[in-house]
């Protein structure tokens, strides 16, 4: 009896939390089908916003900027981060610790402080625009890559690399053939995380972007006062469904399960 009550209460509480998490998403999905420009009245079901979305140049441009930015910043951050982690790992204890402190600064600092500090610095040498936002995104992405690769480097078997070198492989060849495969899972999750962080960022982009450059986040923020274009709800619903499918596919592929779970855990603990 007590056990049954416990199960019931547990189910009830979990359902409550899930409702709390997904209520706003439900509202947004409904708005994407709402045949009215107003947010407060229901004007019947329509697919118009989905049709109009693809001919809305502004939104498509912001989407392209967001995706290119996320991809480029994640890619560059992964290269610099992986090399950085390999180098830091070989440092003496004192330098190692100092580098890890610097790596933690962008993570622990408030986004608003990071964004402002970068903006104040950027205005001295580059025009604020896509370039400055890219530099800013790389700056906050590199630490995520380093922290996700570092545990793999610690577990890595260095003697395999030494053996490859002894057998005549040059450093670059041995790096790509022996070291990189051992680090692959850390590198992939680092890249994935950097991509997500970049897609998700608003505050740092807001301070480091110039006029005329918009990501989806800054565009939505700019529209708050005038009212959000309903096409935006349609786009968000599409992104949400794509993410849902990708995560489902990743989660339920046999054999991949464990790895994906690790990936998600890391993602969530960022």
């Amino acid at each position: 009896m007590v056990e049954k009550l416990k199960i019931f209460l547990s189910r009830f509480y979990i359902a409550f939390i899930i409702l709390f998490l997904y209520a706003p998403i439900l509202v947004l999905v409904m708005l994407s089908f709402n045949n009215s420009r107003s947010r407060v009245t229901w004007g019947g079901f329509t697919l118009d916003w989905y049709r109009k979305l693809f001919s809305n140049g502004q939104i498509m441009e912001a989407l392209a900027t967001t995706l290119v930015l996320a991809f480029a910043s994640a890619l560059f951050a992964t290269v610099i981060g992986v090399l950085g982690a390999l180098g830091i790992h070989a440092m003496r204890r004192k330098n190692y610790q100092m580098m890890m402190v610097f790596t933690n600064i962008p993570l622990l600092n408030a986004d608003i402080v990071t964004g402002i500090a970068l903006m104040l610095w950027f205005v001295h040498f580059i025009p604020l625009g896509f370039g400055s936002v890219l530099l800013a995104h790389m700056t906050f992405n590199i630490p995520y890559v380093i922290l996700s690769v570092m545990p793999r480097i610690r577990q890595m078997n260095l003697s395999v690399y030494e053996a490859a070198r002894d057998l005549g492989a040059n450093a670059v060849y041995a790096f790509f053939k022996v070291m990189l495969p051992q680090l692959a899972s850390g590198i992939i999750s680092g890249f994935f995380m950097a991509f997500t962080m970049s897609m998700d960022d608003f505050v740092i982009t807001y301070f480091t972007k110039g006029p005329g450059v918009n990501t989806l986040s800054t565009m939505i923020y700019g529209e708050i006062r005038k009212g959000i274009k309903p096409e935006m709800y349609a786009l968000s619903t599409i992104i949400f469904v794509v993410a849902l499918l990708v995560l489902l596919a990743g989660n339920y592929r046999p054999g991949k399960k464990q790895k994906n779970q690790e990936l998600l855990e890391k993602e969530m603990r960022r």
């Binding site: 899930i18 998490l21 997904y22 209520a23 706003p24 998403i25 509202v27 947004l28 708005l31 997500t196 998700d200 608003f202 989806l216 986040s217 939505i220 923020y221 708050i224 959000i228 935006m232 709800y233 968000s236 992104i239 949400f240 993410a243 849902l244 995560l247 489902l248 989660n251 399960k257 994906n260 779970q261 998600l264 855990e265 993602e267 969530m268």
Partner: peptide
Amino acid sequence: SFVMFIWILPMWMNFILRLLAW
């Protein structure tokens, strides 16, 4: 992993839009 899944999914909906929904 279902638990992780439940928590990570909402993050893919833009957070400003979710706040406007609130």
